[in-house]
Amino acid sequence: MTVGNFGVVTRRTVLGASAAACATSAIPRAQAATPAKGDDAMVPVALRINGKDHHLTLDPRTTLLDTLREHLRLTGTKKGCDHGQCGACTVIVEGRRINSCLTLAVMHDGEEVTTIEGLGSPEKLHPMQKAFVVHDGYQCGYCTPGQICSAVAVLDEIEAGIPSHVTHDLNNVAFSDEEVRERMSGNICRCAAYSNIIAAIRDVAGEDKA
């Protein structure tokens, strides 16, 4: 069996409208034709992370989270539970927020990843980062990168008309605090800065005038 080079990927066109968080541009996938036979078989993986191409050779067990933290020293993305329950590891892949702990890097060969480091920098904060500072949307800060990546994607999802559990009319999706609470439920904050997190997101959404 070979790890093939696949030219056609159509999945991301499905939700193209919500892919505003980062522009998609193709990165050649790792040209791996090496049969993966032995237990120690490493696999080549190409990722474009925060606009920069990376070509890696990884144990196939390596999660996207561990790739970011341990192989690329992008330690802004945090490991909380490592089981998809806390959201601290949330990153944006091909425009969609996911738990980077519950996916293998090799599954994302050729794809585009945005982490907290790619959203903004200390000198030039992303509006969501700035709003978290202004509204004091954290205490210890450990969950914050995941909260911010998730929040950026949540606003895109609302903009794209994707409904949620609390959307009253499935065909009429609009911003509300109730929507934010529901949509952010996959990001746990054990300091319980929730009310200020919601204030920050409301601010960025432009709904803070009421």
């Binding site: 927020r97 519950l102 559990h165």
Partner: peptide, 19 residues
């Protein structure tokens, strides 16, 4: 098939539903 949309949206988190 609104019951299907509703059931899906009642499950997991936004991050997990994306995957």
């Amino acid at each position: 098939y609104a019951v299907l949309s509703r059931a899906l949206l009642a499950g997991a988190s936004g991050q997990l539903r994306n995957k």
